[in-house]
Design a protein around this nucleic acid. Structure first.
Lengths: 253, 253
DNA sequence: TAGTGGTCTAGACCACATA
DNA sequence: ATGTGGTCTAGACCACTAT
């Protein structure tokens, strides 16, 4: 089960990905150009091109013809991870985002958090609980747990100005994410914090994110069913272009 | 805003995608080999290679070294669309899938279905309502609407043997999909069909799929909150390989 | 043995940015 | 004028599969 030899374009890709993950190459940093890779690694330009082009397709870097290749910044990285910042979402709808902090303190891990973050129950976690408002209407209650060693300054941030998610993205590159979506009835306190009618369910998103292969943060996001939905749309790449020329009489989009 | 000239590898890709969408090339059909494309289109082999390789990466075709290139079959296509068949999911968990048909008839479009499928209210739709069981426990109520012209034989299928989703995949290549996920309280009838406790919410998935640029089917999928969750995991490609060599002391996965 | 995909090379021309 | 990415070519070697 050995993989014989690893192709050179793959070796190049992994070399650069490693430098990005390790922090040796930071977002917006310049990545060696094709010609530089040709000189430094002895590979042909087509091979260097393939490595950088695939890194571009995968969202690791951004290439600008005539300028150069640069490590993708965190906005782009979060696009790769399909993670959205609630504040950005609200701003995108043209509304105002406000956050109310309910709690911001160190606390021992309960069962759920310990399991999610692969630590022992009772270990110390950074914990924030806040409510996000869209035009003064509560839309999300965020219960966030963070491993101290990845963001020691977490509790000292002003979460009315920067969301926990945005702050964490800025200090630790997200490299892996998991979502679990459930419908749940809220407890009394959650219901009141979100100003929900009794009998109204919550759409709950549990999200874990990893950096460098180990869990960094675990969040439980509660949304009033009447004010929140998740949506996703998928079209395979290239389909539009091909559709333009096929299917003579169908209504285009 | 003209794009000057379209690169040849793109032209090749679009040519083949068009043949797939139009049915000229059916799943499992052989796609011209690199050498054949070189001969028929006058392009160099590297260019043909790039076209076919990218089609492979995008899930349109599957390539087997030493054998050839083939149009990806519908299993693979549904992977591209992140669509899962409930029967497959249940089988994957090692459980038995059963379906109970509640309704299977033609019916006029109501407001929601008409809007979703971009037709006028009252137009005739094929309509099926069924309950999916996992080891005899109801887990999903499916309310499915289909545009007649895309699957005229829809109502004559045995949905205890093949799910509506699987049947539709087999007659019409899914090329675009949209999901909207909500939490809702079920009405009396849904609650009874799913054998839910009173006060228990539903996780509801509304799914639309397109073929050849126009909507084909609209489904509302109701799940008991206590027996169903949606999950998603994302890791950027290549990350594992790079992680293997970085971050000296972290616990691998 | 012939065909397939997988990779790689050493050139080349182009449009575009920067200086 | 130089460097960048974007594309393309006409070869080449390899491992694999089929016959």
């Amino acid at each position: 089960m050995s993989s014989a030899t690893i192709p050179r374009y793959r070796q190049l890709k992994e070399l650069i990905i490693r430098q990005i993950f390790s922090g040796e190459l930071r977002p917006r940093d310049r990545v060696p150009s094709e010609n530089e890779l040709v000189e430094s690694t002895g590979v042909s330009r087509m091979t260097a091109n393939r490595a950088l082009r695939e890194l571009n397709d995968e969202g690791y870097v951004e290439r600008v013809a005539g300028v150069g290749t640069f490590v993708a910044d965190l906005k782009a990285a979060s696009h790769v991870l399909e993670v959205r910042n609630i504040a950005d979402e609200i701003a995108l709808r043209g509304h105002e985002h406000k956050a109310t902090i309910l709690r911001c303190a160190e606390s021992p891990a309960d069962n759920a958090a310990a399991e999610a973050l692969q630590i022992d129950v009772g270990m110390s976690l950074l914990h924030a609980r806040l409510v996000h408002h869209e035009s003064d209407i509560p839309i999300q209650l965020e219960e966030r747990f963070v491993l101290p060693r990845f963001a020691p300054q977490f509790l000292h941030q002003d979460f009315t100005a920067i969301t926990p998610s945005a702050y964490l993205s800025s200090v630790s590159p997200l490299q892996e994410a998991e979502h679990i979506v459930r419908a749940e009835m809220p407890d009394q306190e959650t219901r009141e914090n979100l100003q929900m009618d009794s009998g109204e369910p919550c759409l709950v998103v549990n999200r874990r994110t990893w950096s460098h292969g180990s869990p960094v943060t675990y969040a439980r996001l509660f949304h009033p069913a009447s004010r929140f939905e998740l949506s996703g749309h998928y079209a395979p790449p290239g389909a539009e272009a091909a559709n333009r020329r096929v299917g003579g009489g169908s209504n285009s989009k």
